[in-house]
Nucleic acid binder design. Structure first.
Length: 459
DNA sequence: TGATAATTCAG
DNA sequence: TGAATTATC
């Protein structure tokens, strides 16, 4: 038997790994697949992050007597060829959600390779949270209620093998070792998963969780957990996070206390979108969830898309957010909603273009959540906001970045603009004769009215 | 996980 | 007159 790591680069709560240990498996593989990653538009920083964690895992597995080989297989077809030719005909894996990955696994089975499959990417197994008519929920809140109720009733198992639990890692040399020129693309700023488990998660629980509800929407404050990149590559498991949360807040499945629950709520959104993709696998082919929106003639002018990508829309909160994405490979969640609304509603650009750009840039790219979020913003999605809910980028900025601290960080040219004008500085700039910022690409009120008419006409 | 204009109501 | 509420997009 062979242990095959994919989107589960971790020791803690890894059912495939546990099974391998119990059965004395000593061989493991992980594929480095540049061509496939390219086909999925994967951001360089995410490739870097994956590579680092694969190397970390290789190092950690030595302690368990398992040899992890990192194998170059350019595409999924090459992975299939490798595994068909391999001596092992039983392969232990954790299931992957996305369509290409599922097809690859199906092709392997057809070729006579037996996959021993576990599910480890969600807390509640996909397919079990259904409404009264046996369908997937189409609205988040009832899904959340059913999800919580299911967990209160059934609980969940987190299995970490005793051998793993007793391991202690001394990683001083490792961090230097995994600085690879091939992949280096900014991920070195993110701590490795073992540091996250040892330090970052306990710190977050101790110091930020009680203030999460009030601070999570403020991009100038590091009020979020910063765990999304680890969840996205499977370096940290959602069950592990819930286990720790439950140990501190035994009533969290009854939505108490409120602030801590608002964090769990975000994890439930993650589950919602993964369950959704499980039920509607074709979402990955770019289809709109709500077919009513199938034939919207989105704006095709590349100038709008490029201005948005480069952070040159003339709306400071949007431009600062896009610079954060371009410079760091990550963007605060509140800002993701603001820039997505701006691209789809103010510029009327196809949400798929924004989805792709996020994919190309984000360290924490998760297909299900990204697609779900974009369709939510565009109004085409499952439990989407109605098309007439259009974020006002100035109001949002005043609300969530009142002193402009975030804006000033990424738009230093606006550093000296008074708070009062920072959210839309054009009149102030005109009055003072400064030339420090480009004009607004569209005027809010007119763009809003245009968007309302546009959606109304094409629905 | 909105925004805005219209309307109501306290003072 | 301006805050609170409601209706509409």
């Amino acid at each position: 038997m062979l242990l095959w790591f994919r989107n589960d680069l971790r020791l803690t709560d890894n059912p495939a790994l546990n099974f391998a240990i119990e059965n004395g498996v000593t061989d493991a593989i992980f594929f480095i697949s540049p061509k496939q990653w390219q086909a999925h538009n994967l951001a360089p920083i995410k490739k870097d992050f994956i590579y680092r964690h694969a190397l970390l895992l290789k190092h950690q597995l030595v302690e368990l007597g398992i040899q992890l080989q990192l194998i170059e297989a350019a595409s999924f077809d090459d992975q299939i060829d490798f595994l068909k030719a391999n001596e092992h005909k039983q392969i232990i894996v954790n299931q992957e959600l996305e369509l290409n990955e599922q097809r690859r696994d199906a092709a392997l089975k057809d070729a006579g390779v037996e996959l021993i499959t576990f599910e480890s990417d969600v807390v509640v197994p996909k397919g079990l949270i259904l409404n009264q008519s046996g369908q997937m929920f189409r609205v988040f809140t009832p899904f959340k209620r059913a999800w919580l109720s299911w967990l209160r009733q059934h609980g969940f198992n987190i299995e970490t093998h005793p051998t793993i639990q007793s391991l202690v890692f001394e990683e001083k040399d490792l961090l230097a070792k995994i600085e690879s020129d091939n992949f280096k693309a900014g991920a070195e700023k993110w701590p490795m998963s073992f540091q996250v488990e040892q330090t970052l998660i306990p710190m977050f629980m101790e110091t930020k969780l009680s203030k999460y509800q009030e601070q999570r929407d403020v991009p100038s404050i590091k009020g979020t957990s910063g765990l999304s990149p680890y969840l996205a590559i499977g370096a940290i498991s959602p069950k592990y996070l819930l286990t720790i949360l439950l140990s501190r807040h035994p009533d969290i499945l009854s939505e108490q206390p409120a602030s801590a629950f608002s964090w769990l709520n975000e994890l439930v959104w993650r589950e919602f979108y993964r369950h959704l993709l499980f039920h509607f696998p074709n979402l990955i082919k770019g289809t709109v969830f709500n077919e009513k929106y199938e034939n919207i003639p989105w704006q095709t002018d590349q100038k709008y898309l490029q201005a948005w990508q480069q952070g040159k829309t003339g709306y400071p909160i949007v431009d600062a957010a896009m610079r954060q994405l371009n410079q760091t490979g990550w963007m605060h969640n509140r800002l993701r909603m603001i820039v997505a609304s701006f691209l789809t509603k103010h510029l009327l650009v196809d949400w798929r273009a924004g989805e792709t750009y996020f994919t190309e840039k984000l360290i924490d790219l998760d297909f299900a959540a990204n697609n779900g979020g974009w369709q939510w913003s565009a109004g085409t999605g499952c439990d989407a906001q109605p098309y007439f809910r259009i974020f006002n980028p100035i109001t949002q900025s005043e609300k969530f970045d009142p002193q402009g601290n975030f804006i000033r960080k990424y738009l230093p040219e606006l550093a000296d603009i008074p708070d009062k004008y920072i959210h839309f500085p054009h009149e102030y700039i005109r009055a003072t004769g400064l030339k420090c910022y480009w004009p607004a690409i569209v005027e809010h009120k007119a763009a809003r009215e245009k968007a309302l008419a546009f959606y109304k006409q094409h629905l």
